[in-house]
Every structure is written in C-alpha cells, then in structure tokens.
C-alpha cells in the first residue's frame, strides 16, 4: 500500500478507483475531481469534519455522530452545517459516553452508517477534508468506505494540528504537553472557548482555527492548497 501511495498521487488513484468501481455513493464522490493542489487556498472549498466515536481504534471502534460544514472563499458557512447521529452496531462504552454525551437510546434511533455515509461523501465531493488531528477522521472514513463499498477513501486532507506543528517548528518553539489540543491551539489565536465534544461544534472549531492559521500565514506569500495539506 505504501509503495502504491508513493507511485500515484491521489488524483491518479481517484481516476483508478473510479474506473474500477461499481456505481455507489463513493464512486459518485470520485466522479468529482479533487481541488487543484496548485490552486490558491482561497479558491479551494473545504469541508470541516468531525466525528464522535466509541474510541480511537478505527478497526474496532465505531462512528457515533458526524458533523461538518463548508468553508468557501475563506469564509465558513453555518448554513451548510450538518450534524447526523449514526447507529452503532455494538454498545456504546460508558467512558466514551461521558465525553460526547451520546447515549444508547439516542443512538439506537439514529440512522445506520450506510445511510449517513452518502451525505458525508456528497458534501466532501470536490472539497478538501479539514479536521483537527485528521488522521482519525481520515482513517475512520476510509475504513467505513472499504467495509461498505469495498474501496478505500482518498482525498486531499488539511490537518490543523499538523499546521500548528509547522507553526511551532518555524518559530523554533518546543511543543509542550497539551499545546496541540484543539482548545489550547484556539486560545493562542484568541478564538473563543467552546464546550467541546459535539461533532459539529468541533468541526466548526477546527474550521475557525484553520481560518486563523492561514490568516496569520497570509502575509508571507500566496499559499497554495499543497502548502496546507497532509495528504495530497
């Protein structure tokens, strides 16, 4: 897999999957070209995404809720904000319920992941995915796609955590425990403190952090999408 990634950029992989795949919401997603990685960052649409999950292991744990909203032209639109609960197959462990506040009965009335995924994929089409510590979001999504549609998910990803690490590096600062947590990172940009752990508000929080990060960077030069992405 890693050689495969080495040899082919995501745009080529998209074309490849698209040709191989039977019709499915994932294929619809692949039908739309990815944003140009050489484009100015303002020309690109982003989807700020966050999930609540039963844990951090993408193989065992499950997605409980999905929240997302779009960023278009350096501006985040709350009009597009969406929050969907999903129905897990297993039981929600108590310790995670404390964090996200989603209890079994609420979850049981929710839709199955198979029905939720098409919404998310439709929203993601032609956009770059944006999240704080995006590996989690990316892998959970890719895993879910592989399980449900039989093919993995790829796409350009912007990780606000990775951007923050770069800021630290460029200023030669050492990273202390907890510095990179979403809330703490936001504080440094003077962003308001949100009560954490609702997928949508976390997605918005990550989106705001992203806008702050690029705004701070902007006086340097024209930033292109490829300057921001971790996967592209």
């Amino acid at each position: 897999m890693s050689i495969w990634k080495y040899l082919f950029n995501i745009e080529e992989r998209r074309n490849w999957w698209m040709r191989k795949m039977p019709p499915s919401p994932l294929r619809d997603y692949y039908e739309v070209p990815f944003p140009d990685k050489e484009a100015d960052w303002r020309q690109v649409d982003y989807l700020a995404v966050d999930y609540e999950t039963t844990g951090l292991d993408e193989d065992k744990d499950e997605i409980l809720s999905v929240g997302y909203t779009t960023i278009h032209g350096s501006c985040m639109r709350l009009g597009d904000a969406t929050h969907i609960l999903t129905r897990p197959q297993g039981v929600i462990p108590g310790e995670s319920a404390v964090v996200h506040g989603i209890l079994d009965d609420a979850a049981s009335s929710a839709e199955a992941l198979e029905d939720v995924l098409p919404h998310l994929l439709r929203a993601l089409a032609g956009k770059a995915m944006l999240a704080h510590f995006a590996t989690i979001e990316y892998h959970f999504l890719s895993n879910a796609c592989e399980r449900i549609y039989g093919f993995p998910f790829v796409g350009p990803v912007v990780d606000t955590l990775a951007l923050e690490v770069r800021v630290y590096r460029s200023q030669d600062k050492s990273i202390q425990q907890g510095d990179l947590r979403l809330a703490n990172a936001r504080t440094r940009y003077g962003l308001p403190r949100y009560r954490a752990h609702n997928a949508l508000i976390d997605a918005i929080a990550a989106g705001e952090l992203f806008l702050a990060q690029v705004a701070t960077k902007m006086d340097k030069k024209n930033i292109m999408l490829k300057d921001l992405t971790v996967v592209s």
Binding site: C75, R77, L78, Y189, P192, E208, L211, A212, T216
Partner: peptide, 30 residues
C-alpha cells in the same frame, strides 16, 4: 444561525479594502 458566515480577520486588515465594509453586517465574536 444559517445565515452566518464565519471569518477570521488578521490584525491590520483594512476591512473596506478586503471585504467591503458595507456589503455585510459584522458581529465581532472575539
């Protein structure tokens, strides 16, 4: 809420030049 667009403005930005001061209503969050 659905009409809100969130924007981050960096210190020193001239709002008239960049975004059109009178084209939107702005509410300062922070």
């Amino acid at each position: 809420l659905g009409d809100i667009e969130i924007r981050y403005l960096r210190r020193g930005t001239d709002i008239r030049q960049d975004h059109g001061l009178m084209e939107s209503l702005y509410l300062i969050r922070t």
